[in-house]
Simulated scan of single mutants.
Amino acid sequence: MKNPPSDSPVHRRYAPTALMFGNLVTGCSVLAPAGMLVELSSDLGVTVRAAGLLITFGAVVLCIGSPLMAWLTSRIERRSLLTATLAVLALANAASALAPDYTTLLIIRLIMLGVGALYTPQAAGTAALIVSPERRGGTIAYVFLGWSLAAAVGLPLITILTSRYGWRTAYGGIGVIGAFSFLLLAWRLPAGLIGARVDLKTWTDVGRNRAIIVLLLITTLQMSGQFVVFTFMGPLLVKLTHAGPDAVGLVFAIYGICGFIGVAIASRIVDSWGAYKTSVLFTVLVLTGITGWALSAGVYPLMACSVAIWGLGFAATNSMQQVRLVVAAPALASASVSLNTSVLYVGQAIGSAIGGLLYSRDLLYGSGYAAMAFVALALMTVISTRGFGRAKG
């Protein structure tokens, strides 16, 4: 790794915030269809399940693209790489607003996410380059706040904008935010940052590292369980509780705000608690919330409360996974964090596919229990990793 030859304290102070806003744009780009499934289905003449495939197919592209792009771009200076990625996201969201049909929208999305796959792992790796080792865990968690903001603010706004002004307006709004984030990152991220080179030996070393493999399995299980429900949370609320657009948007807002709170707490406590204990805490919260969703299905207030508990853990668990991977093998961080992002999207694809199957067969109550099973396995696996990285948690 190489630090920039010269950069001001101001740049280093605000660079994590610029990286965090880039994750906000990435998160909105990935999650957007979840807030507009009904409107996309109606306007484009496809089923809700087909609209949900925008998330499923997108996740497949992301899971392949993340390690591939990490390999192809490992020698590129980070400011140039990350700003170019945000430019593509901004332009692709603007193009999505003009898509004439479902096929065109899907193609644009796949191209957009094929490039966007590199942002989150490279942002995490870049954050590790610009702070001291003792601040690394908290900074990586802070950078991941962008995803929490995407769920806390972005997704509810997307849901409300779509219900009132249409999905094209929502995509246009993401494009505008993407352009702003591009400018902010170009302004504040120091030049000259080069990460560790990713080559064939790097992937071989990752594959031989038991700690990394088990941590990647945890991410897959966590995401699979959550996306069984999350992908279709809006339509499920409508069918189970007859909730309107504002009530659905409120649940998304609760989910995201609690996610923001959860990851903010995690970023404060991880350096003192250690990543293992922090990970156990927030995985328990996810399991508790999803269990509440399953048991209270059909009762809107109880489902909303369950989503609040679930939300406290959803972003924090993944940020802890990134911290634990960096701590487990710092020299392999560029590859392992990109693989974590990849398996995160594998989990999204698995979960949304299962959720879509259950939804299409009208097994609406079963989705919560399927989600519980995945997250319970994830928790048991987290507990089994107590001995990993004892020095740092």
Rank of each mutant, 00 (worst) to 15 (best):
G262P: 01
I130L: 07
I212R: 00
V375C: 11
R268S: 11
L145M: 05
F388G: 02
Y365Q: 04
L193F: 00
I354S: 06
V382W: 02
F57R: 10
G114M: 10
L37S: 12
H242T: 13
G393C: 12
G311A: 14
A92M: 15
R168E: 06
A150I: 14
G116I: 09
L72P: 05
G45D: 04
V286Q: 13
K201E: 15
L145C: 04
R109L: 06
V60W: 04
S66M: 11
P330M: 03
L302I: 02
P156Y: 13
Q348I: 15
L149M: 13
V346R: 00
A34P: 07
A264E: 00
R164S: 15
I265P: 02
R208M: 11
K392M: 08
G347D: 10
F282C: 10
A370Q: 05
T126L: 09
V228S: 00
S319Y: 09
V38G: 11
A243H: 01
F232W: 01
I309L: 15
G389H: 11
P301Y: 06
V46N: 02
L217N: 01
G114T: 08
G355P: 08
A141P: 12
M112I: 05
L339R: 10
A32K: 13
I194Q: 00
I269G: 10
S8I: 04
A333Q: 10
V115W: 12
S267D: 14
S296W: 08
P235N: 03
A247M: 07
G262S: 03
N23T: 15
V346K: 06
G289S: 04
G116F: 09
R12K: 13
G154A: 03
Y102L: 07
P16V: 07
T231Q: 10
V327A: 12
